[in-house]
Design a protein around this nucleic acid. Sequence first.
RNA 1: GCCGAAGUGGCGGAAUUGGCAGACGCGCGGGAUUCAAAAUCCCGUCCUGGCGACAGGGUGUGGGUUCGAUUCCCACCUUCGGCACCA
Length: 885
Amino acid sequence: MSEKKSGYDFNAIELKWQQYWNDNKTFKAADCDTAKPKYYVLDMFPYPSGQGLHVGHPEGYTATDIVARYKRNKGFNVLHPMGWDAFGLPAEQYAVQTGTHPAETTKNNIDNMRRQIKALGFSYDWDREVNTTDTNYYKWTQWIFLKLFNSYFDQTEQKAKPIEKLPIPKGLSEDEKQKYIDDNRLAYEAEVAVNWCPELGTVLANEEVIGGLSERGSHPVVRKPMRQWMLRITKYAERLIDDLAEVDWTESIKKLQIDWVGKSIGAEVNFKVDGFDEDIWVFTTRPDTLFGATYMVMSPEHSLVDKITADDKKQEIETYRQEAARKSDLDRTDLAKEKSGVFTGAYAINPVNEEKIPIWISDYVLISYGTGAIMSVPAHDERDFEFAKKFDLPIIPVVDPDRNELWDYARRMGKFASEDVGQINVKMSNKGKEKWLDNVVHEIIQGRACYPGKGIAINSKQFSGLSTAEFKEQIASWLSERGLGEKAINYKLRDWLFSRQRYWGEPFPLLHTEDGRIVALSEDDLPLQLPQVDNYKPTGSGEPPLSNAVDWLDVTLADGTKCRRETNTMPQWAGSCWYYLRYIDPDNSEKAWDSEKEKYWMNVDLYIGGAEHAVLHLLYSRFWHKVLYDLGYVSTKEPFKKLINQGMILGEDGQKMSKSRGNVVNPDHVIADYGADSMRLYEMFMGPLEASKPWNIHGVEGVYRFLLKAWKMTIDEETGKLDSAVQKTEIGEETLKLLHQTIKKVGGDIEAFRFNTAISAMMIFVNHLSKQKVRPVSAIEQFTKILAPFAPHIAEEMWQKLGHNETLVYEPWPEYDEELVKEKEVELAVQVLGKIKDRIVVAADADEEQIKEKALASEKVTVAMDGREPKKIIVIKSRLVNIIV
RNA sequence: GCCGAAGUGGCGGAAUUGGCAGACGCGCGGGAUUCAAAAUCCCGUCCUGGCGACAGGGUGUGGGUUCGAUUCCCACCUUCGGCACCA
């Protein structure tokens, strides 16, 4: 399209100003400038994919750019950086297929995406660009890893400390001492079950496994314990929840994080195994139902299963375990609707009543949560109830339900788990409801139905009659006194599996000695560079690709000890966990960042990115930040003050954009046809930042027309100079009022991230001003300033044509006068009994009496009142009048 | 199943300490300009009835609170996003 007859040659204008900003380093952020307040605006940095930018990226980037530019106008020293989260699988897979080194692929992709991002005119300080795959960057990722490795978590102080300060129990041998230390590090090695695909020779992520088969090629996948590096994020569970109070995030994102951490309070209880000298610990949130525990279930992976299984059950147990191993975590829950399990032949002793209860294994018990074993109380747990029904195990009720809670529970369930009670009917009469509840309670205390709620204890010896809450308290002390259990807190959050069997990631700065010890590199030996390899595939035995780097692999220490390097690499999260800190001091070769600069810039005032990172990235990042805080490297508890998740931009068909649907919009084309300013403006005009909304190319035309109109009200189409209607005169009353209203609205909307309505206000102003025969220069100048954060190129060009030589990036934001914003006269709706009958115009400061008088004087109102007397007259100033008769 | 967000014209959306529903933009209809078209400009545009002034209805559905509800409360339906037996 590229309509340039109007003189609005956006391609030329945009190129010109991008060049200007670049040459003049207009957006360079000054470190530690105490003359100005600082403002740190951060985008989630992108993975440089071969597809390049999609229209979703610029949405968040435009929002932050508007804020960054606005804050500069408001006198802030703004830090607004950009970089690349460049490790990751796609470049590695491309390397496997083509032999191209991932570094080369990555560089090309970055060059392309940088070009695309620059074409949108964002005000980044490009001198601070970071790249997680750069050795000068990942040197410090490795440095942080060493900090984790060389720290432990002090339980009483609830913080990380250097490992040298770890108190070591007396009387340990050298080996035991070493093991004790290693077991307390924040980074530790463990055998964990991973999704192993023998055919592909690699470990797969949960989402790469579908129905027990690999997503690529449909090969069988099994759960296999493998040696992995883990990070002790669970130590920070409590603080990750508590410190959310300090940040300005929406309640729903906070809740997402809280639920992910998944704190639950209960007790761990010790069950002896009958005939063995073994203990099985179980975690329960309902220690008050111990008397109702009629059997026990262990996860198939539980370490005691082999030991306690009776000889005649071994075959059956082994078969079941193998079946369970074949299922991924997802399949276990999704496909296994019907409960399954096998009896081990062994019995446990219930500590409260010495009853022998059978021990089963079943895959509904997860090895990774709690202790990997549960006590089953079928009368008060739905899963246990289902299992007991299926295998005909006894059900002993121990809670007489609280009737209110039972009613709520039954209503939520929609039905009740017993055939003998009729369907629940929400519209039941009170009497009917009581009768129905009587029946249900009867079913429950007969053990024919399950009720998981609170109530009064029954069948629990000396504890009978206690409320659930009292019982929990008393049983906890009772168990504790006898050494049979303790209060305990469990979290759904697991320690972070931090190693990957990949090539394209940060190498761990660790050595394995011949005799099995682990030695960390010293900080002086960093960076540990990624070696060249001929083959990017894992070896057939599942060894990571780095095992192929023979020259790199073997190391001999100064004392002659022979070592092998760690061949796993870090996950993509590692680099993105701390990039916001490197932006503060990106070229520092002595330190990860200077602490004066850190104190000046942190924390991040505004962080915008996709909702897909609302849980993991933010949790991991916050975890690292807290460790760095404990060790004194950062000055704030939390990294990100204000967080916003932008919504998704859908295709024109309202579907998620994807290559297969063919509905992907390429920003390059939009910029070529309508310009970057139109692209930016449209992405903000579509709707609220946080909502998902469909792309519509006609919408781009709409905002383009707005820019064109703004251009034409300023510039003469023929001469390219100021239009003759633009004159140095006083601004007329009406225009002045609208101008001040617009300044107020746009500023307020930017502060509240309501960019769509800010643009609409500017449209109203341009619609008004472009109709005026004479257009005062000062009105246009002020308008240009408020347009600038949204459409910076056209604004700079207009600013220049208005006779200014300097960029308007640092021009002060226009002030508005509250007096001028106010309307002098207002129109009120006059209602009779809530229905609008007429409208009256009154002075803005008219009092109630005057308004009433004027309203009652209306002829239409008189007709509508039909001779009745007003009983009450409600006056809402500047809104309406309602007459009640 | 659980948790979260949201349902407003033909479309994207605006309006909430409860006070004139539909700002702004798209699309559509009509007109101007043009040999004609594109572009541009002007007018109209929630629905129903009426030539009309006007009347009635209207914010997913059904109730409730209120002088007054898109906004608050209860129940339900639908869509999207997240989680997945967490004892």
